[in-house]
């Protein structure tokens, strides 16, 4: 028996793989650095209080105004309205798939939901502008061409499969013994679903809701196409608004001088967006971690 050789190739590979792995950490560092760098310069020129309290967003106007609240309210409007579509429909689909559907039906429906999830957001944007909006205008003639409602419906449809699939996973993870126990006591499917399964899968369902809302907040192309470019605090679903993401795309498309204050607004708004979605994702993780039922 020989003493240990050094396996040079093995060690080199391990180092390379560790470097690959650190790229994902560098990505986060890069994101935070990029956002912070320009934001810090921005807040040297514009007071942070003005930024978060003024209710007018007009960075390219003369005189400019840097109140981010209209963008936040536009974003929240989209988040709330789209949740009204994605959460009930997603949860309903999940309950149906997990508790009611035959395995045959499940096999048919799940791929279709996956397909719905794979449609690019630009396609939903097109659909919102050229189908949903005209449809809305036939029923509600006062609807503007660009409006929050149409974009929200499309965002809701886009995030529906995510709610459905994550909630279904959570419900499928509830052990069959619990389900059978409830049926053995003479419960109907409705009672088992709503009184036993949904509560047992609550943390998974709740986190899927939070993640869907976070996705809606970060969604870009749908709102850029269909929601309009008017920063507004009005919270009018039928009117034109602007979201944080919509503003960023709009600025990127225009001819803005690098280093100008207008240019920096993109990074500041990106920072707000990043922080909001990060917090929501952490909340979703916390919900899962805290309420994890232990079935052992």
């Amino acid at each position: 028996m020989k003493k240990k050789k050094t396996y040079i190739q093995e060690s080199i590979i391990q180092v390379i793989l560790a470097l690959f792995a650190s790229i994902s950490i560098l990505t986060t560092v890069g994101i935070v650095f990029s956002l912070m760098f320009e934001s810090v310069i921005f807040f040297n020129e514009v007071s942070i209080i003005e930024f978060f309290t003024t209710i007018r967003w007009a960075p390219v106007f003369d005189p400019p105004s840097f109140g981010v609240l209209p963008l936040i309210s536009g974003t929240l409007l989209i988040a709330v309205l789209s949740s009204m579509v994605s959460l009930p429909l997603g949860l309903g689909s999940a309950i149906y798939l997990s508790e009611f559907a035959s395995s045959k039906a499940r096999k048919l429906i799940k791929p279709i939901l996956e397909l719905l999830a794979g449609v690019p957001s630009i396609v939903y944007g097109y659909f919102a502008l050229t189908f949903i909006t005209p449809l809305l205008r036939t029923f509600l003639p006062q609807t503007e061409i660009f409006n929050a409602l149409s974009a929200s419906i499309a965002v809701g449809i886009m995030t529906l499969p995510m709610v459905a699939s994550l909630s279904e996973d959570a419900m499928m993870a509830v052990p069959n013994s619990i389900r059978q126990g409830a049926y053995a006591l003479g419960s109907t499917q409705l009672e088992v679903s709503t009184h036993v399964i949904v509560p047992a899968a609550f943390s998974g369902i709740a986190s899927s809701f939070v993640l869907a809302i976070s996705r809606a907040i970060g969604e870009t192309m749908i709102v850029a196409i269909a929601a309009g470019q008017t920063p507004s605090m009005a919270l009018n679903p039928l009117g034109s608004i602007q979201t944080m993401t919509g503003f960023m795309v709009n600025m990127a498309l225009g001819d803005i001088q690098q280093g100008s204050i207008e240019f920096k607004t993109v990074f500041v708004v990106g920072m707000v967006l990043f922080v909001i979605t990060l917090i929501m994702n952490l909340i979703a993780k916390k919900i899962i971690a805290r309420n994890r039922e232990v079935y052992a």
Binding site: M1, K2, K3, K4, K5, Y7
Partner: peptide, 20 residues
Amino acid sequence: AFEGINILDESTDVVELRKR
């Protein structure tokens, strides 16, 4: 002890060992 070494030693070449 196996062929003059202690298998449990940190310095044992486990790859060679498992071949043998």
